[in-house]
Design a protein around this nucleic acid. Structure first.
Lengths: 210, 210
DNA sequence: TGTACATCAGTGAACGCGCGTTCACTGATGTAC
DNA sequence: TGTACATCAGTGAACGCGCGTTCACTGATGTAC
């Protein structure tokens, strides 16, 4: 309803509207994704949901594939941002005034909970990254770069935890353990099972710190 | 080329042929799955690959959905069988004549390596179970039963490992840790990364025994 | 062993559908003078 | 401020395609007497 950004600068108004439309299309695609799976994403259906005709979307995405690629790249960006936010701040802020003991592993702990939090907030995005790979789809360079960045963030959050193990090695274990639990949870494999997922997750996180 | 089973008993010959054709259809479906993902599985394409027309397959499966269900059920059965085989035999057989120390955790170790082995042998089947859930697909009772059985096998393989932790709890951790590594590996997330996956896996397995 | 009938496997034509994508076109929005 | 032109957003018709599924039918295989 309201114009958030300065409406007085006309030069890039069109560009801004374009970006808005792209965003809207991707958001609707994500809803579709959640409802019908990756293969159910349809250019025509997205356009229809936006109140336009199918071909119109080709002003914004060269093809269905490009749309999918954008979706995947966005997912990576989103998760990476969540991790950076969590791992960056946790060493200093959050719960101050506690002893040095509680600070130990705080960054990894923060990263871990951010990981799970993001995944539960955006299950379809998480599965877009870590679920069944899309057909003949090889990750574009961009996502590889972001994935490498996430790994660095994790490694850095693991530094100084255990002199007997390299941070790299521990980060790998963190990655696999986090995904193990979160991947199963997000895919619904815990549904109907009678145990405390939060507790199990916390235990696993602590197992990585101790 | 050769008839394996007794060709002299005519009563269930048709039934046997039927089962053979179903098998062949499912095998081809699995190839399709590997090549194009779950959504790419097409009744017509399968029939064509078998040298028959599309409608013919409806003699063997009531619908595409039933075919998919059969595929999923088979995958569960296959993994469950591999686990049972491994966890059942490992406590007594395999490498005899070694000390009691090496026997400790042998069943869980066997189960773990069987898990990964099966997954790497049948990546598309593994992802059918543990990858992105198919659209509006809720697991039929049969698969829930098999899944519960796998859990029991795992729990039993965890018994007596640590008096301070219930076997159920340890089995859950085993499940999530195994899947974490195997799921990422099978989906190709380790491709191009420079580390020893076998080593990491062994480390994780030992972390569950120790 | 031969005949009559029932069951089953597979074909080919046809259905309606939604898909991705192209193309020529209309109207609105922005730019230059 | 007004006019002339270029750019862009969106439409509607059309394309070829492969899909799941049905239906009436043919021919082969098995069963009963």
């Amino acid at each position: 309803m309201s114009e958030e950004t300065t409406p007085s600068t006309p030069p890039d108004r069109r560009a801004r509207l374009r970006e808005q439309t792209r965003r809207e299309a991707k958001d609707i695609a994500l809803e579709q994704l959640a409802r019908t799976g990756p293969a159910g994403i349809s250019v025509n259906a997205i356009a229809k949901a936006m109140g336009m005709t199918g071909p119109a979307l080709y002003r914004y995405f060269a093809s269905r594939d490009e749309l999918l690629t954008a979706l995947i790249a966005d997912a990576y960006t989103g998760l990476a941002a969540a991790l950076t936010r969590a791992a960056g701040g946790a060493s200093g802020g959050a719960t101050p005034g506690e002893g040095a003991q509680s600070v130990r592993g705080a960054r990894l702990r923060g990263l871990a909970h951010a990981w799970r939090g993001w995944a539960k907030e955006h299950p379809e995005r998480y599965l877009l990254i870590y679920g069944t790979p899309v057909p003949g789809y090889s990750a574009p360079e961009e996502t590889r770069t972001i994935a490498a960045g996430m790994m660095r963030t994790t490694v850095s959050a693991c530094e100084g935890l255990d002199p007997a193990e390299t941070a790299e090695h521990r980060a790998l274990r963190a990655w696999t353990r986090l995904h193990g639990l979160v991947g199963l949870e997000v895919a619904g494999h815990f549904d109907g099972m009678d145990f405390d997922v939060d507790q199990l997750f916390s235990d696993e996180v602590e197992s990585l710190i101790r």
